[in-house]
């Protein structure tokens, strides 16, 4: 099967259960938004997929091959992480040189081209780069690697708006040229909303939602008006959040839309991905 399959993965840290029997798949050839609040378990799961930490229970399979301590998945998955794990003493061009040797699928020409677009000085040592340029180097490395699954954990940390836009453009271009699975774990939901095709939402160690962005946006909506009217309309619906101001009420609904009753004074508006994320994770809290 062409996918990253997460099967019943559990990870505990002393008294905290970071991941609680998580099971789902990242299918091949799609762009995923892997979303969740701080401490939800995103990085823990990414680190398990990338064999950086071990799960206490369950397993991760990449194209059917167990990911744990297995060189068989070396050319299949790459994880660009927020943490700086690279040798600070090596120059950027040396890093590229070694990556070319480590991975059969590393495209040196593409790496240099991307580095040029970002004006990344390849003569500089990794440790001498600013935080933003260290991120750019990590992005460049990930984009120049033609593996079927690429994971970006907080990819635009420390980047200015221009560089973020450039990264998103390069990512899309890369995806158009060669279809592969791209997983983006980020807090900047609105920035990636137009980029991602599917959303996996994780909260307190559990996957609470996996859906295509299209379906989610079609299913999520806001209804506002007088509180009594809103309550009457929402009866039996999946209300994921609400705000009140005086006698006015705004509710966030996930599910099938029904016609607004004529003369009720209610208004129906679309809900964006970020609001949906906030309300879903707030709902879990309450």
């Amino acid at each position: 099967m062409n996918a990253i399959q997460i099967r019943n993965v559990t990870k505990r840290y002393k008294n905290i259960t970071a991941l609680d029997h998580v099971s789902f798949s990242f299918e091949h050839g799609r762009i995923y938004g892997f979303l969740g609040r701080n401490g939800a378990g995103k990085s823990t799961l990414i680190n398990i997929i990338a064999n950086r930490i071990f799960s206490d229970e369950g397993e991760v399979l990449i194209d059917g091959i167990p990911a744990k301590e297995n060189m068989g998945v070396h050319e299949k998955v790459f994880c660009m992480s927020e943490t700086d794990l690279y040798d600070t003493g090596l120059k950027i061009k040396e890093h590229f040189k070694w990556m070319k040797r480590f991975y059969d699928s590393f495209d040196m020409e593409k790496a240099l081209e991307i580095a040029g677009k970002f004006q990344l000085d390849t003569e500089k040592r990794f440790g001498a780069l600013s935080k933003g340029y260290q991120t750019i180097f990590k992005l460049t490395a990930a984009l120049a690697l033609n593996v079927p699954y690429v994971i970006f954990d907080e990819p635009v940390l420390g980047l200015d708006a221009n560089h973020r836009e450039l990264f998103y453009a390069l990512l899309l271009k890369d995806y158009e040229e060669k279809e592969r699975t791209i997983i983006i774990a980020t807090h900047l939901i609105e920035e990636v909303a137009n980029l991602i095709e599917d959303v996996v939402l994780i909260d307190r160690g559990k996957v609470i939602l996996q859906e295509s962005v299209e379906n989610l946006l079609a299913a999520g909506y806001c209804v506002s008006g007088m509180a009594q009217e809103v309550d009457r309309y929402c009866k039996g619906k999946n209300v994921i959040g609400q705000d009140e101001l005086g006698g006015l009420k705004l509710v966030y609904v996930l599910g099938e839309k029904t016609q607004i009753p004529a003369g009720s004074g209610l208004q129906m508006t679309a809900m964006n991905l970020q609001k949906l994320f906030v309300k879903l994770t707030e709902k879990g809290e309450s």
Binding site: N51, R52, E69, M71, V77, F78, L85, Y86, F102
Partner: peptide, 10 residues
């Protein structure tokens, strides 16, 4: 750290 980042096993 460097080698685990580059996908090598322990």
């Amino acid at each position: 750290k460097m080698l685990i980042q580059n996908g090598f096993t322990r």
